Amino acid sequence: MFIAGFPAGSFQANCYVIGTDRGGDALVVDPGQDAFEQLTAVLAEHRMRPVAVLLTHGHLDHTASAAQICASLDIPAYLHGADEFMLDDPLAGLSPQARVMLVDFDLTGLRPDTVTSLTSVDELQLAGLTMAVDHTPGHTGGCVTYRFAAADGRPEVLLTGDTLFAGSVGRTDLPGGSTDQLMISIERHLLTRADDAVVLPGHGPTSTIGDERRTNPFLTGLALS
Rank of each mutant, 00 (worst) to 15 (best):
F2M: 07
I3V: 15
A4N: 12
G5C: 05
A8W: 10
S10D: 15
F11L: 04
F11C: 05
F11W: 15
Q12A: 15
N14Q: 15
C15Y: 06
C15M: 13
G19P: 02
R22Q: 14
D25K: 13
A26Y: 02
A26P: 02
D30P: 06
A35S: 13
F36S: 12
L39Q: 00
T40V: 07
A41M: 11
A41L: 12
E45V: 03
R47Y: 09
R49Q: 14
P50E: 10
P50D: 06
V51S: 12
T56V: 03
H59L: 14
L60E: 05
L60G: 07
D61S: 15
A64Y: 11
A66L: 08
A67S: 06
I69F: 09
I75W: 04
P76K: 06
Y78N: 02
A82P: 10
D83H: 06
F85T: 14
P90K: 07
A92C: 02
P96N: 10
L102E: 03
L102P: 01
L102Y: 03
F105R: 14
F105W: 09
D106W: 07
D106T: 07
L107D: 02
G109K: 01
L110C: 04
P112M: 08
T114F: 06
T114M: 12
T114K: 14
V115P: 01
L118G: 03
V121T: 13
E123I: 00
E123T: 08
L124M: 01
L126A: 04
A127P: 00
G128H: 08
V133Y: 02
D134P: 00
H139W: 05
T140M: 04
A151S: 13
A151C: 05
D152C: 03
E156P: 05
L159V: 12
T160G: 01
D162K: 03
D162R: 06
V169R: 05
R171K: 14
S178M: 09
T179G: 15
D180W: 12
L182T: 05
H189E: 14
H189V: 02
R193L: 04
A197K: 04
V198M: 12
L200F: 11
L200C: 14
P201H: 01
H203M: 04
G204S: 02
G210C: 09
D211C: 06
R213V: 05
F218L: 06
L219A: 08
L219E: 10
S225W: 12
